[in-house]
Every structure is written in structure tokens, then in C-alpha cells.
Design a protein around this nucleic acid. Sequence first.
DNA 1: CGTAACGATCCCACATAGTGCAAAGCGATT
DNA 2: AATCGCTTTGCACTATGTGGGATCGTTACG
Lengths: 264, 264
Amino acid sequence: MASDQGNNQSVERAISVLRAFLTGRPELRVSDVAKATGLGTSTASRLLATLETLEFVERDEVSGLYRLGTAPITLGGVALNQHPVHREARQIAQDLAAALGLGVNVAIRQDDSMFYLANFEGRLAPRSYVLTGQRKPLYATGIGKCLLLGLSAAERRSLLPAMPPFTPNTITGHDRLDGELATVLGHGYATEVEELAFGRACVAAPIRDRSGTVVAAISISGPLSAIGLPAREAELARTIIETADSVSIGLGYVGPAHLLGSRP
Amino acid sequence: MASDQGNNQSVERAISVLRAFLTGRPELRVSDVAKATGLGTSTASRLLATLETLEFVERDEVSGLYRLGTAPITLGGVALNQHPVHREARQIAQDLAAALGLGVNVAIRQDDSMFYLANFEGRLAPRSYVLTGQRKPLYATGIGKCLLLGLSAAERRSLLPAMPPFTPNTITGHDRLDGELATVLGHGYATEVEELAFGRACVAAPIRDRSGTVVAAISISGPLSAIGLPAREAELARTIIETADSVSIGLGYVGPAHLLGSRP
DNA sequence: CGTAACGATCCCACATAGTGCAAAGCGATT
DNA sequence: AATCGCTTTGCACTATGTGGGATCGTTACG
């Protein structure tokens, strides 16, 4: 059949059409989609028509251009609402962002990336778009460092064969990453200052489930000037650890795994 | 081919599989999906396998049950970020929710429903799930009333042939709705007190684009006790109108349409 | 502990359903 | 007014998805 084994070709093609809208420009012509997906224009036209009746894409009345429709928004919202971490963390993160006026983000690990489940901003760190559903590298973010705690040194090396730098501060070698993660584990929180983008910093802490496994992480982030990191590190660290803990407890976390009795 | 004309059957079936996850239970077996969609189990199995490789669904390691995956979240996030109303309203709504401690919601009209683009909550009106992507009836919500301003009385009657009540306060007749909308237009804002759900109320105002058309609406909502509606109506109305205006201005609104010069 | 019932996947033949090509519409541009 | 580019439609072909049944694995029950 198609690329992988036992897959429905038409469905794969339709999804690749949807993926075409993820790459920059929000409005595409049929021929743009055809070029982006490698499909013929007639196939692209028909798939877009199908996706339009399903409300996955919609068509601009005047220009005739296609853009993403409302069905993906609904589907994404339900997917979020069904995610246990999101359910527990959403309101907590929102309250913290409002109290601090800074950004608060919740993410899980997906393969070699962190994947945002939610983000809220405050007056001091505004942002006109959602990060939800976006990915960022694990080794250059506070949340990412927390999520890496769940992996062994060997797993980290195979998961991240290369660590290209984003700024001069980016951790690019595993030896330094090992050291950094030991610190994170020891302190119970991670920091990141201009490792991914200039002028931005964050403080993050891991979220654990009832088995004690790190399943997610939460961070406070913002412009360096607003977050005032060197000075406020102790205060923000305490805050984010307490916040992460209350999410963990919501997920059933009861304490370090080695203290759990073996009885049911 | 399939239900509508000129549509790709496999794609329609795959989407109907995804829709099966919108109806309550978050985790489904193959046979549950087959039953919900009316497809054969082997077809459902294959479609789910395809959707799994595309990350639209994922499978629980232990139970083998399928649930929605991360791709819908990404797609939904991008769809939101590409929506002009969302871009303009997101941070404004978030700041207002933080300042008031109440819920703030942004929605557009879709057919006979309002469709949430964003919702934020405050300490006084917590909520552990997103409304984004959900629908609510137009005639029983403050936002809905604002969105109905863009329609004529005749259009409203054909769009809403029936208006079943949710509480004793629900507006169920068009005559009363006409009167209500005249008030909304005259005051520049809409209220809703226990018309959709007991114990809940809101104040809403319309958002207009550069042509002066109502394209969206924004509301402050919360439990009756927190929002204190009879008493604070004037204050909240002023706030929501000013907030809606700043979103409208971001969309290019420059004032009432009839004052626009006809010159380009 | 063995057996039965159920659910998911695999296999294979069939024919439906999607594809590509080419031509026709449709709009915009000069 | 004519041309160009983009999109859609019609048609024939066969690749592709489908359905039924067999197989394998799992759970429930006697």
C-alpha cells in the first residue's frame, strides 16, 4: 500500500494536505497544496473539497483560498481535555500566570522534543499566539531538562545524537548536560537563561504521576528583564516546585517511589 | 461515491473514526469505534492503525485502548493561531481574566451556534478544561446575542426554527429575542443570567472588523455569586465594551460603517 | 486449570472507489 | 477582447481499500 505498512493511502494523503497548512502561510491555493504534498492538482482539489465538507478546512469567500477550519480546533480541544496532565494543570497554571504576570507553560515529552499542552501569559510577558501543540528541543529549555530526568544517560545519548546550539549558552554536549541534570535533580528545579533564545529565561519543575515517574513539567518563563532571574531565582524556584507538586498530587503522586509499600 | 458528492470515502471514514472520540468516553476499543461509526471491525482496525502512525490517535501501552493523540492538538493550535480574531483577542482576554478573577471568553458564530476560540478563567471562576472548539446555543448566551446582531430578524427566524429552554429564564420566542437584541444594540452589550445554566451569568460585547461587521464577541462570565451581576452590571459592561473595542481596533475597525467615506 | 467467548489482526479475492490525464470552465491580467 | 493560469470535471483504468472468514491472543468463567 503506502509508505508504512498496512496504511490507508487516501487518509495519509488527506493528512499530508492538512500538514501543508502547518508550514508558514495560513492560506493556500489548490496548487500550493499540490506542490507542498507532491500530489496532483486534481487529487489535491478533491481532497480539499472533502476536507471542506468535514470542516477541517474552509474556503475564503472572496479569494477562494483554503485555510484550516474549525474541526481541528474542536478535535484539539477535546484531545487536551482528555489529557490527565492538562486536566490537573490547566487552572493551576492559569492562576500562577495571573498572580506573577509572567508566562506559565505545561509540557510533556514527545520523542526528542517537549510538547506544549498549555501556556498562559501575564501582563509582563504577553504573547498573541498559543504554544499549545508546538514542540521545542529538550536540551535547551527548562521544561525539557525536567523531562529528561526520566531517562538514563544512555537513553539521552541515543535520543539526542546531536544538540545544535541556538545561542552561545546552549548546552551542546552530553557531559555538560549530565552535570546540569544532576543539578536539576539535586535542587528539584531547572533553570534556563538564553539557551534557546536571546532575552528569555525560565524556571521549571517536574510533574510526577502516582508511580513517581516524571510525566510532564511546568515552567515560569518570560523576558529576562521581567523575570529578573539571577535575583529572584530562589523565590521563583520555590513557587514552581510547589506548583508542580500540587499538580503531581492531583495526578495521584504520593511521594518518592522507593518509599511506596509493595502491598496493594 | 459517498454521502455528499465528490468526496473521498476513506477520508470521510477516517474522520468519522476521529469523531467517535468526541462523544464522551476518551478511550475506545476497536470494536467501540466500529460500533460508533458503523464500520466493520477490520476497517476500523486499519483506519485506527493509519491514524496512529499519523499521531492522530495513540494507543495505551497496557490496555491497548485508543485515545486521541497529539497531532490534533498541534493542528488545532495552528488553526487558532492563524485566526485573526484569536490573534487579536488572546492576550487581551487573558489579561482581563487575570485582572477580574473571572472567566473571559471569545467566540465566533458558526451556523446556529457560537464557537469558542478562547477562554480564560480567574481564581473566582475556575475550570479545569478548555471550552475552545466547543459550541453553545446562540440564543441562550451573552456572546450569542451579540453575534446575532449581525443577522436580520428574518435570518434569525430561519436559523433558529426552535429554541428549546435550558432554564426558566431561557428566551424561547423570537418576539422576545427581537426585543432583547434591540436592547443589546442600544446598550452596546448583552447580559445573560441563568438562561443556559443555573447559577451562571455573563456580560458580553460584540467585536467588529474593519467593515463594521460583527465577527466575534467577548464575554465576562462566572458563577452568579462571583460575578455579582445585578450590582456590578454597569461596571462590567463598561469593561467588556472597552475590551471588545480594543480587539475591534486591532482588527482594523475604525468606527460605525455608515461614517466610512466611500473613497478608497 | 481447562475451556469458552470475545476481540483484534491477518489473509486473500473481488470490485469498488480513487487516481491521473486531458479538456473544459472560470477569472484575472494586460 | 484575447490570453494565461488555476481549478474543476469527465472518463477509463487499475490500484486500492473492503469484507468475510481464519488465526491468534486475551479475558472471563465454569
